[in-house]
């Protein structure tokens, strides 16, 4: 019996199911307990699991991230919620310098089975400092995994996989998607890491993206279909590990590729994808890979400017026409 729930409820279901399944799992973050979550993701969890497993932290990301890493070294499986990934920057030393390297530095003695999750991405008129798309910068670090769910189904399935993973996993949820409903099965299921999903099939051009920009890709694909260009839209699902095989197979068929990445272009996931595709698909390409990324500027506050700075359907359409020489 299919049922439709919100993206935020899917996240909550994943956490609750895993906490019922494994007593070592707990949730720690700002306003996750008494206030039921800044975005009501953890509504009802304090009541079910009590204050020892759903813990309010002071505004001190570096402190509670480090606390979580310590707990993980002692054998617990923490979920650390960042109200926004923009706030995780002050915890960079813990989440980038300690968590992903500890297993290596301890000679394999200390795995860090921790999940850092929260809202990522821009588009909410939150200004330059609160509109971070951290994926490119963070994905640069070896030792961590990164999942960016596209819909409620993946939000639950990827988060459950993340909680059961023995490595630090960064789960980037989009604030703009929290209220979007989708069909989510009740009970246990996992979405494996490193397996991309083809969100739309097409023969003429491959579009690759992660998370929220995929909606712009699908919107662009619809309007391009009316022009006779059938795009294949691929959701990478996890940045690390990256399912480059699925992407490469698609490009081998279409001969064209547009990469859509919400973060800045320089040294980005978009740049990495383009580089890998150029290597794997050199003889298949009829044009170089074209990237649609956020503009190389701090996020503006003004709504119209911010929409223009980010990837959007219009820019994706233009990129697809350009790459397929249809412009």
């Amino acid at each position: 019996m299919p049922r439709s729930i919100e993206f935020r409820e899917a996240i909550r279901e994943a956490m609750c199911e895993e906490m019922r399944r494994d007593a070592r799992v707990f949730l720690l973050g700002e306003e996750v307990a008494q206030y039921q979550g800044a975005y009501k993701v953890s509504r009802g969890m304090l009541k079910e699991f009590g204050p020892r497993r759903v813990i309010d932290a002071p505004i001190s990301e570096n402190g509670f991230s480090g606390l979580g890493i310590g707990a993980a070294m002692y054998g617990l499986r923490p979920i650390i919620e960042f109200m926004s990934w923009s706030f995780s920057l002050v915890a960079a030393d813990q989440i980038l310098n300690n968590a992903p390297k500890m297993l290596y530095m301890s000679g394999g003695q200390f795995p860090i089975p921790i999940v850092f999750r929260g809202n990522g991405g821009a588009g909410g008129q939150l200004g330059s400092t609160h509109s971070w798309c951290v994926e490119s910068m963070y994905a640069n670090v070896p030792g961590l995994k990164m999942a960016i769910p596209f819909d409620a189904y993946d939000a639950k399935g990827l988060l459950k996989t993340a909680i059961r993973d023995d490595n630090p996993v960064f789960v980037l949820e989009s604030e703009r998607l929290l209220s979007v409903k989708g069909e989510v099965p009740e009970g246990d299921y996992l979405v494996p890491f490193g397996e991309a999903a083809i969100r739309r099939q097409g023969t003429d051009c491959t579009i690759v993206s992660f998370g929220r920009p995929l909606y712009f890709c699908l919107e662009a694909a619809e309007s391009l279909a009316a022009e006779g260009i059938e795009c294949e839209v691929i959701d990478g699902r996890t940045v690390r590990p990256l399912d480059i095989e699925t992407i490469s197979r698609s490009v081998a068929r279409t001969n064209y590729c547009v990469v859509v990445d919400e973060s800045w272009p320089f040294a980005s996931i978009g740049a990495e994808l383009a580089a890998q595709i150029h290597v794997l698909n050199f003889d298949d390409l009829d044009n170089h890979v074209v990237r649609v990324q956020a503009d190389d500027v701090p996020a503006p506050y003004a709504y119209n400017l911010e929409q223009e700075m980010l990837p959007n359907a219009r820019k994706i359409c233009e990129a697809v026409r350009a790459v397929t020489y249809a412009a």
Partner: peptide, 28 residues
């Protein structure tokens, strides 16, 4: 001529070569 602007990169100035310009898949 092609736009690198979509990726936020200023188009560099590249030399033109006196050879056949052809995409890899077209050559194949």
């Amino acid at each position: 001529q092609e736009s690198l602007e979509a990726s936020g990169v200023k188009p560099p100035v590249a030399p033109a070569f006196d050879r056949v310009r052809i995409s890899p898949v077209a050559r194949r």
